[in-house]
Design a protein around this nucleic acid. Structure first.
Lengths: 247, 247
DNA sequence: CAGTGGTCTAGACCACTAC
DNA sequence: TAGTGGTCTAGACCACTGT
């Protein structure tokens, strides 16, 4: 239960106080000096704590004025974003999944670039349907690099959390991700598996995931059935997680 | 040209070196001690600089190992995200825009909550079509709080950058935003103005923007024509800008 | 104007990685 | 085991906000 890092303790306490309504939206937080005294910490440690809340979009900060609460609802962590199963559990819903097809193939030009392998190197292609409370909500077309593909191919067909299993089996940690979001019309396969009409709008997320060292693991085309999932981004002039790019 | 903040100078130099290919994807950056010596700065200042690149998703960082380049393409800033005109200009394209309808109305329950005003308080509704190189790409349905609405209503109908004009006229700075992304089918009005068929997939971004103090300014339902714009998010286990939420 | 956050320094100790 | 990044301290000065 104990938290060894002091800045994390302070950040957690502030997050809790905000979530509990001690500081409603628009309210001013205690000054750095006050927080430092209250936690018997140096100013640098306090600043590290509030920087975390700043990055989460929970508070705003301007030179000369006290920090202000912007939102009382915490945003979820990368882990929940990456792992469909974990995110579903956090929301009190049951995640399911099933591999519809899986086969070794050769990397197309674009995939080779994303996975940092050579053109026509072997890759594992997996088509996976994910469900939420037994409703199909997401169709994943994932391409794995050869070095991790054999571990993926060995997983059971109805594996709930691929991320978790890969960590348990191989120690692999997915640390970084790049995501491109847009909308597309459902193709025949999409419509079939997600149980909607061809041409229906789908939210498409094309993503590439890498290890902590920056080594690409997988690249995927994920299509979400509308009405089931919404993506949320918070940003500020001080932080810039999201960007618009040409198609 | 000179940059007064030392940590910004160091960050800029690292960004430039990465963009120029001095450090390709996968390469290790100099150690903190080396950077500190090279820039005649303290370790704390160097850490502040690399923290910025970390938040941008350009580099990865793990205790005990040197920092590693994850991507060589910089992501754009919040300012470019917020201002359609500015973002277009940065990409070498010409932004246009036109107000299709504008009228005072009363706040609906949901809008009142987002704008932090009372139910049925007056609000300004604006329907705006934005173009890129004369092609319609985005239909905005924006609701402004009363206190800023009169300034918005006074703007010319073909105002290129509302954000810029509001800043010039009133000193207003849009500092924070919350964005919800999903896909919807084009309604009759959407199809008409964006010149596509009813039912076509659209990327919908519902957003609320606030001042630096956290005061809500506007809330908007933006619908992007597919194929014209893609949204990009980078994240890490160390940073968490994006979250998936239930619809 | 006093108070606040932004920047910067020069140390220290520890946990972890890579060799 | 040497080097690296993560944490923390105790100061300092400055730019800016609010009154």
């Amino acid at each position: 239960m104990s938290e060894p890092r002091r800045h994390e303790r302070i950040a957690d306490e502030l997050r809790r106080a905000i979530a509990d309504g001690h500081y409603p939206v628009g309210a001013a937080l205690p000054s750095e000096a006050e927080l430092a005294a209250a936690h018997d910490a140096s100013r640098g440690t306090v600043r590290q704590a509030v920087a975390a809340l700043l990055a989460e979009g929970l508070i705003g900060s301007r030179q000369g004025a006290r920090r202000v609460v912007l939102s009382t609802t915490p945003s979820q962590s990368f882990t929940e974003l990456r792992s469909f199963a974990q995110w579903a559990r956090a929301g009190g819903r049951t995640a399911g999944g099933r591999v519809l097809a899986s086969s070794w193939d050769v990397a197309r030009t674009e995939e080779a670039g994303l996975l940092q392998v050579r053109h026509k190197d072997p890759v594992l292609r997996v088509l996976r349907l994910r469900t939420l409370d037994s409703e199909p909500v997401l169709l994943e077309r994932t391409v794995y690099a050869e070095w991790i593909g054999s571990a993926v191919a060995a997983l059971p067909e109805d594996c709930e959390s691929v991320t978790q299993r890969l960590y348990d089996d191989t120690g692999l940690v997915l640390a970084h991700g790049e995501h491109h979001l847009d909308a597309v019309a459902a193709g025949t396969a999409d419509a079939d598996h997600l149980r909607l009409r061809r041409g229906s709008p789908l939210l498409r997320v094309r993503r590439t995931t890498t290890t902590a060292e920056g080594r690409p693991v997988e690249t995927s085309d994920d299509r979400y059935r509308p009405g089931s999932v919404v993506f949320t981004v918070r940003n500020s002039t001080q932080t810039n997680p999201l960007a618009r790019t040409r198609a």
